[in-house]
Design a protein around this nucleic acid. Structure first.
Lengths: 340, 340
DNA sequence: TGAAATTGTGCAAACGTTTGCGCAAAAATG
DNA sequence: CATTTTTGCGCAAACGTTTGCACAATTTCA
């Protein structure tokens, strides 16, 4: 049997409560006694029992991490693992634990989340996506259960805690980067616009055009379908049109990679005929030929900040909802720049 | 305050113990009573308190997931997220939770693992890698703490539980696939051989050659350095030698991708001049040009099986150590086959 | 029909903490 | 020096389960 608070108390010649208070550095224990207790703890290799401590203080010191319900493809994006690593790393430091929640459908997720919250398995959830009309997010909101979004909230914006990049600004910068290279015919390829990041990036793209006096061409602004085949078809169509764009902002490296492939097939040279800027700065951006200019969104730090906010709100329940903006930066590579 | 076992007991007109036993479907409670209790639980939306239950039954229903201590690049491999998803999914079903442990160095990992095990935060660890002389694995072994390896154990093989692919067989099949295409000059590019999977794949490669009467050329069998620059140098050297191989087995898709790049630079056509087979069947294999023939190792299922074994051993502590071999399969694509 | 075995349920003591409250002893105050 | 205040610590009751044991009620058996 592991060493308990009583063993320490006995060795130090104090009561269990004193030991407990020493652990939390409670001010009403004299430094002298604390030292005595600490030595006893050290000697016995004492570590407070997590379950007992949680039961007594009515919390779980556990954070749920919700992956988007989705097909396998999505997860190839290294964004998720990096965010998880960030969260874990912060949790490890703060003596919290975290648990990944995953499911194929929203319903599956929801049911796991319901039992987790009811049984007190977690103190809150970090949701690794933000999407309109998502039943999971809606449920958490309606129940008043603590959650943090990675991505921008789409409703109840002032009441929800979220960590995000400034995707509008990022896309704006990406677009302006292309404009500076002399491009005027710039397209945007996005994914499902009910996902907040995709919608925001589109908005930033449009903003940049407007601010630079470039008219928005609706044909240039595409919400690509989910299936890869249909994506390829749509891209092919865009690139074969008479009024072909000379530069494209793409919402994701993986998609940009596919785009590069199509360009090659169509004998369009990158960046000469088509310049590309994309998002995430994942390994794929570095491996692609030509290498992709990409906006790094600091997914690891998104995770860190999310965990930090979460723990902050767990420990101070009446804190107001905060929004955190994590910086991004443009990494210029071959796909957008002739002079490099 | 959430609904407790006492509330249910009161509503059902029984004692708390009866409710508890009903939850576990204890045989000594009559079906009649159970039904009554179940209705009460239903009505109140009761969910047993996780912390209290764990404290009373002296476990944590929590599994630690240990990521390899490493630089960022490693994690781009979708293997890890898939394994985590597998573990999570199984845990979610079984009402277990899981917590990711990550750190930049072995020491950092070790310290987190030590406090986690001492404080009873976890019942066991699933280690997502297997490496020789790893201080984390050694610590777990020496302390007699429950752990499951994903990858082959390198020592105390009969006392450790591990989940693995048959990497020897897989590499053998990969190599034989190349031999069947008429190749005789086949090279192997591996990573750090202290990582079990890399060593095994090399062994399988050599076995296939031997069994097919092909002499092993030491120059063909390379353990590539960690830094990308050095990797490129080594590969360039291999491909520029007078006695250039005509086919290569590569231990990882990412590395194979780099290899493709170098081939293109050297104007070597794939698969005509160089055929390639690699491992993991990640998105990158499908996106590469030409698409990579790759061995799918079923990382999601590796996770599932690991979690399953873990829970099995938590609940039956005197079970013997099992080894689980998860099937792989060769996915043939353009990089190895002219006739497709 | 009475004793023994079986069945179904409840009592109460754990599990290892946290924390409000009480109470000595020490320090400060007049 | 008596009184009040402060300081430092311990007592004991929670927290919500699980589970060994006791025991009444029922069934089985001789």
């Amino acid at each position: 049997m592991a060493v308990t608070i009583k063993d320490v108390a006995q060795l130090a010649g104090v009561s269990p409560s004193t030991v407990s208070r020493t652990c939390k550095d409670h001010p009403s224990i004299s430094e002298e006694t604390k030292e005595k207790v600490r030595q006893a703890m050290q000697k016995l290799g004492y570590e407070p029992n997590f379950q007992a401590s949680n039961l007594a203080s009515q919390n779980s010191r556990t954070i749920g991490i919700v992956l988007p319900p989705s097909a396998r493809e999505t997860y190839e994006n290294s964004f998720y693992l990096e965010a998880i690593r960030g969260i874990s790393s912060f949790c490890n430091q703060k003596q919290y634990i975290n648990t990944v929640v995953t499911g194929n459908t929203e319903e599956e997720l929801l049911s796991v989340i319901k039992t987790m919250s009811r049984s007190g398995q977690v103190d809150g959830f970090i949701v690794l996506y933000s999407k309109q009309d998502d039943i999971v997010i809606n449920h958490l909101y309606n129940e008043g259960f603590l959650y943090v979004l990675i991505g921008k909230a789409y409703q109840n914006i002032n009441q929800t805690i979220y960590i995000d990049n400034d995707n509008i600004l990022a896309a704006q910068e990406a677009t302006e980067h292309l404009i500076k290279q002399g491009h005027k015919k710039i397209a945007y390829l996005g994914g499902d616009n009910s996902l907040m990041f995709s919608a925001d990036r589109r908005a930033g793209y449009q903003l940049a055009l407007t601010m630079n006096g470039i008219a928005i061409n609706p044909d240039y602004c595409q919400e690509l379908p989910f299936k890869k085949k249909d994506q390829i078809k749509a891209i092919n169509q865009l690139l074969s049109s008479d009024d072909r764009p000379t530069a494209i902002v793409v919402c994701d490296d993986i998609l940009a990679f596919t785009l590069e492939d199509i360009c090659e097939e169509l004998k369009l040279s990158i960046p000469k005929d088509i310049a590309i800027v994309s998002f995430n700065n994942s390994l794929i951006a570095k491996l692609a030929t030509p290498k992709l200019t990409s906006i790094d969104v600091n997914s690891y730090q998104l995770g860190i900040e999310a965990a930090s906010q979460m723990i902050n709100h767990i420990e101070n329940p009446n804190l107001m909802a905060t929004k955190i903006i994590v910086p991004h930066h443009l990494v210029v590579r071959e796909s957008s720049s002739l002079d490099r």
